[in-house]
């Protein structure tokens, strides 16, 4: 019986199953591959249109008027910004609104 060409053709499926096994192992080890979380400052979350993280940080007591460091490239030409500046730079009015309702000063 000449079955080996069929098994060779199925090699990518073995890779798929190994990859999935690795995903499960990494998840059990607390380092899920597709779910790696980068901690964000309030300004970064606002710039990256992350409304969920903005809401969480505000609920945890983050100051909406403070200046926060931002990674290079997150807010054009800036290494620090207020959340409001960052949200405006990202063009996200809903996040601007959320910040204003949470006490951010428009000035």
């Amino acid at each position: 019986m000449r079955r080996w060409p069929f098994f060779v053709a199925g090699a990518p499926l073995a890779v798929l199953m190994l990859a999935r096994t690795l995903l499960i192992a990494l998840s059990l080890a607390g380092r899920p591959l597709f779910w790696a979380i980068e901690p964000l400052t309030l300004a970064e979350a606002a710039a990256l249109r992350d409304g969920g993280e903005v809401a969480r940080l505000l609920a945890d007591g983050a100051d909406p008027n403070a200046r926060y460091p931002v990674r290079r490239g997150v807010v054009r030409g800036r290494t620090e910004a207020t959340p409001l500046e960052a949200a405006r730079a990202a063009g996200r009015p809903e996040i601007v609104q959320l910040l204003l309702e949470s006490g951010a000063r428009a000035d």
Binding site: D50, G51, R56, E101
Partner: peptide, 11 residues
């Protein structure tokens, strides 16, 4: 989904 939860209640 998390973004929706962050923004929609305010709306």
């Amino acid at each position: 989904t998390r973004n929706d939860w962050g923004l929609q209640p305010g709306q």
